[in-house]
Design a protein around this nucleic acid. Structure first.
Lengths: 120, 120
DNA sequence: ATAACATATGAATACATGTTCATATATCGC
DNA sequence: GCGATATATGAACATGTATTCATATGTTAT
């Protein structure tokens, strides 16, 4: 792996023109906020385990409870959270409710993250 | 975009063999923990703005302060956090300290997340 | 109707996290 | 050495978040 030096170094002593150049790389606050919400959804271990089950399957709450070993209430709260972010869809069938991940965007980040973490 | 139905549906009434099949998709707790740390690093708006500056450039703390409009202390604490996760490298030069992102893995997730968020 | 089951939710609690304030360390110019 | 500058850090504080507990809602079976 080559140790390529970073393209450009910035310090305050640089002229304002250079500061403006750096500023163009700064993401806006609204963008940062929306982006942080996506990553925040993936920032909790139990939520990641839950998501790993919903990635390719539709699973009812009671089964999630059995597989994850979490309380029914904790799972239901997490699912509510994911629902509010529109990350999961759900389908009621009798007394069961089946959940599945409904955001390819998050699915992609999860899988990419997993690839890297597993390879070391 | 096709609305492809999810491959398989799981409920507790399924036999244990199917439960075992679902279990294979569950990521382990250690994996979930390591994965969550990566996403947690990207889960705060200010940290994302900071990272956006360090993605392609080496920048000193004082410049980060000027561009981000955060206090010197807040930035230094965030940098410490990123340092402890080995996500940034730093180089001391006189009284200045230059930081740069040092994790391609996080760089990739950041850019992928940004792509999706910006396109809507 | 009643009991058992499946899920949801509000309140309380415990814990993590980001920022600020004050202060420490280290370097430079004089 | 001394003051000014650049960065780091500990403690305090406020806020956010995940879980638990108790309970509510809704469905099925009897």
């Amino acid at each position: 792996m080559l140790d390529v030096p970073t393209a450009q170094t910035f310090c305050v002593s640089d002229d304002t023109q250079q500061l403006a150049a750096l500023n163009e790389h700064l993401i806006s606050s609204p963008t940062a906020n929306r982006l942080s919400e996506v990553f925040k959804a993936l920032s909790d271990p139990n939520r990641l385990r839950l998501i790993s089950l919903l990635i390719d399957h539709e699973v009812c709450v009671h089964t999630l409870e059995a597989v994850l070993g979490m309380s029914q209430s904790a799972i239901s709260h997490q699912l509510r959270h994911l629902r509010q972010l529109n990350l999961v869809r759900f389908r009621k069938e009798g007394r069961h409710v089946y959940y599945a991940l409904d955001d390819d965007h998050v699915r992609g980040l999860f899988k990419q993250g997993l690839l890297h973490v597993e390879h070391e």
